[in-house]
């Protein structure tokens, strides 16, 4: 329980860092570490597949993509950011933590039958036999992503 709480606290701290850090590269690494911790939490809670995907895809692949993209950018003009975020974010964050601590534990205690899997079977069975429609959706999302890249990077120099 203590380890779990500590892991969750680290997860939240790393996520905050990912938002708060001004350096994009550090921010991306903080995010990768956060998903690594999340992957460990998944493992500990008995969801190995979710853990594997979280670590391999989110912490691994997506981080590589982020870093590649950041490497392709040039340092240009300083972007002036609103100072308001520096005040609003901590206030909202603290309020969120307070609400979380006060309400969620009691509320979750009232959720009946939590942590009972509805669909049985191996990962492959669930994915191919149980959730095939989601795969169709996934294909559609990938298609949309590819077409979006093709569309948004067409005749780029004309607009630069």
């Amino acid at each position: 329980m203590i380890l779990q709480t500590a892991l969750l606290a680290v997860l939240v701290a790393l996520s905050v860092l990912a938002i708060a850090l001004k350096d994009l590269l550090r921010s991306a690494i903080a995010l990768a570490l956060a998903s690594l911790v999340l992957g460990i939490v998944f493992f500990r809670m008995g969801a190995p597949y979710a853990g594997v995907f979280e670590i391999s895809v989110v912490a691994g692949l997506i981080t590589v993509l982020f870093i590649l993209t950041i490497a392709l950018t040039k340092s240009g003009d300083e972007v002036r950011e609103s100072k308001l975020a520096n005040i609003v974010f901590p206030v909202v964050f603290v309020a969120f933590l307070a609400i979380d601590a006060l309400v969620m534990k009691r509320l979750m205690g009232k959720v009946p039958a939590l942590a009972r899997g509805g669909e049985a079977g191996t990962f492959g069975e669930v994915l191919w036999k149980g959730r095939t429609l989601d795969l169709v959706g996934q294909i559609a999302v990938i298609l949309a992503g590819v077409f979006a890249v093709l569309a948004l990077f067409r005749q780029r120099d004309k607009h630069e």
Partner: peptide, 11 residues
């Protein structure tokens, strides 16, 4: 999932 399909294309 399909809400996301429509949304990603619309962005």
């Amino acid at each position: 999932v399909f809400l996301e399909v429509a949304a990603v294309a619309s962005y």
